[in-house]
Each structure stands twice: as structure tokens, then as C-alpha cells.
Design a protein around this nucleic acid. Structure first.
Lengths: 190, 190
DNA sequence: CTAATTTGCCTAAAGGTTTTAGGCAAATGC
DNA sequence: GCATTTGCCTAAAACCTTTAGGCAAATTAG
């Protein structure tokens, strides 16, 4: 019988596509095996476990996101950079909901430390350098931006803002306006 | 043989406890049956499916959250209300991570419309009445607050902020300061 | 206080996913 | 061409979900 040409790389890539099609939670070793027309057990030579597969998909998504964010940031600063960066998250989540869900997977600390997550944090900090924040406020702001981006995209994806006026795009624009204004005028402790 | 005294109510309540102990994703009909020392099939008289069980746990969590938020809001206004409301989310998520994860479950539109989710939205709007926002800015602000609360709590829960200075409590306080300042000074469209 | 009915939990069974173990054949290297 | 490595296979055990049908306990009615 001819071989299917499996590899960890191909499996993870196909898993990411599967996630976008059927949802990250429905990505299973079985479903992936069906997609390659191969016995389930065969995948276990390339992937340690179901959890391992999911983690690898998450890492792939984080890399893709970081790459796009880096592209978007090139040559931009200030509000321009802020908006471009934020749009990368939102656009990616809308175009690749399964991958985005994967990127939100809880990773154990060591895996997270070795992931593209650190690039995300560095880029957020780079954006904030366009505003006049000093430590520890810059860190507070990093956390706030991460929260808003992830939170907004998550709520939007779960349908929280659909079918009600004004449309989500308008709120997104105004929320970014507001964040820019806030960063330009970060309050001192009360 | 004596009966175990199952009921939908008791199952959902036990399911919520189980979620806090082992994580919402690990809540299964089987695990719940073990907890009651009862055959798995017996649960299906009280709960339609695994999905149904999870949805009911989510609805319970949303109710509990809304109840606490309503208590916290009583007699407060302005920043006081904002902080109390936000703390309810964060404290609940830290005390009941499984239930909180359940509350973030994607519900189908009709279920969501009948859930306590609408109370949450109403309370957020009530808080914003302490600031001088008019439509559609109030709606934008509702969405932004929801995003920050959910986003922050989610990131904190997944360990995003741990083991790095400054500690998460400080960032939380300063983020709420910042939100208050922003709402008092909401920017007009550029 | 029985008798009828309802209700609650049980056994049985089928179908799906995960994971390990061991085997044969195809690809690779000498 | 032969040996070794690698890739995918069959087999099988363990666990979760869900449906069907049955018996006994609890509830209601006469």
C-alpha cells in the first residue's frame, strides 16, 4: 500500500485547517486520520497525544499571528501602529476562528515561554513606546491592551455583538480611538 | 436498592462543583455519575445530553454572577460601582474557575437571550449612566467594558500575568483607574 | 390499606475517541 | 542487492455518550 506521507508538520497544518472548518474543540486525532484516509493509530508516530496535537496547533497559530502582527507593525507608530496591530488580531480571528481558538489554549508555563507569545508581548510594548508611559504603567497598559483585544475578539466571535446596532466594526473603531486617547493621557494613581 | 435522589437541579449544582475542581472541560456525564455512585445512564432521565448538562451549568454560573453583581451594585454609583462590578467578575473567576469557564460557553442565540446575560448587559449600562455618555457611545463603552473584564480575567486565569512584576492586583487597580478616567473623558470621533 | 400508576435507577448494548503494542512492507543507505 | 530504518497497519483495552427496555420503589387513588 502506498504511504500517505504523514509528518508532524503536515498533521499540524491539516489540524489547523480542520479547526477552522469544524471548530477547535472538534479537532480529534480520529477526525484527522479520516482526513488523511489513514488508520488512527498511525498518527501516534508523529504526534504524542491528542493534547500534543492541540498544543502544536496552538503554537502554529501563535506564530502566524505574530508574523502578521510584525508585518503590520513595520513602518508604523503611534495610533497607526495600535490600530494595525489590533486589526491583525481581529481579522485573524474572523478569518481563522479555529486557529484563533487554538491560540487561546492554556499552555503550561514552559511551553508558553518558548512560544511566540513572548513576541506578542514585545510588540505590544513596542507600540506603547509611541506613548509616554514609564514603568510600571507600561506593563499595566500591556495587560490592558491584551485584555481588550482578546476580550473583544472573543465576545465578537461568540456572537455577543451581532444583530444589534451599532455594528461591531463601528464599536471596534471607537474602542481603538478610546484606547489611543487613554494611552495619550494615562491617569496618575488617584 | 435505595435511590440516590437525583434531579436536574442537583446534577447541575454538582456539575458546577465538579467544574471548579477538575475544570469545565473535564465535566462529563460519566464523572458526574461516579460522584453520585450511580450508573451513567441514570443521568439521562434528568439531563438530555452532555451538551445540555454543560449549558445548564453555564446558565447557573451566569445567574450566580448576575446575582453577585446586582448585590455589589446596590447603593453604588460612578467609579465605585465600576470597581465593585469589575471585582465581582474577577473574584468569581478566581474562586470558581470552572463555573467561570462555563459562563464563557457559547450559547445559541435563543438560550443566550433567555439567560442572565441580559441582566449583565443591563447592569453595565446602569453603571455607564454615572458617566455622561449618549448613544451610540454608551453601547461602544458597554462592549469595551465587557471586553476588558472578560479579557483580563481570562488572561489572568490562564496564568498570563503570574510570576512577573508588578503583580496582577496592581495592574487590575490601575486598569480600572484608567477605564474610569476614560469614561469620564470619552473622546469624540476623530 | 391495598392496588394502580408513575418515577427512578438499573442492565445491556452500540458507536465513537484515545492510546499502546507489535507486525509487515516500503523507503533509505551501504 | 541487502540491511536497516521508517511508516502505516491490525488488534485490543479503556473510557465517554447515548438509546432501549426492565424492575422496584415511591406516589396516588380507591
Amino acid at each position: 500500500m502506498a504511504r500517505a506521507g504523514l509528518s508532524t508538520e503536515r498533521l499540524v497544518r491539516a489540524g489547523a485547517e480542520l479547526a477552522d472548518e469544524v471548530g477547535f474543540d472538534s479537532v480529534t486525532v480520529s477526525a484527522l486520520a479520516r482526513r488523511f484516509d489513514v488508520q488512527v493509530a498511525s498518527l501516534y508516530s508523529h504526534v504524542k497525544s491528542s493534547q500534543d496535537l492541540k498544543t502544536r496547533i496552538a503554537l502554529l497559530a501563535l506564530e502566524e499571528l505574530a508574523d502578521r502582527a510584525a508585518d503590520a507593525l513595520a513602518g508604523r507608530a503611534g495610533k497607526d501602529a495600535l490600530v494595525a496591530f489590533a486589526d491583525v488580531y481581529r481579522d485573524y480571528a474572523r478569518a481563522h476562528p479555529g486557529r484563533y481558538a487554538a491560540a487561546r489554549l492554556r499552555l503550561d508555563p514552559e511551553t508558553a515561554a518558548a512560544s511566540a507569545g513572548v513576541r506578542h508581548a514585545r510588540m505590544t510594548r513596542a507600540i506603547l513606546r509611541g506613548y509616554d508611559l514609564t514603568e510600571p504603567d507600561e506593563t499595566h497598559a500591556v495587560r490592558m491592551l491584551g485584555s481588550v483585544f482578546h476580550g473583544y475578539v472573543d465576545l465578537e466571535l461568540s456572537g455577543g455583538f451581532s444583530h444589534s446596532a451599532p455594528d461591531s466594526q463601528q464599536s471596534w473603531t471607537r474602542v481603538l480611538d478610546a484606547l489611543d486617547a487613554l494611552l495619550r493621557n494615562w491617569p496618575t494613581p488617584t
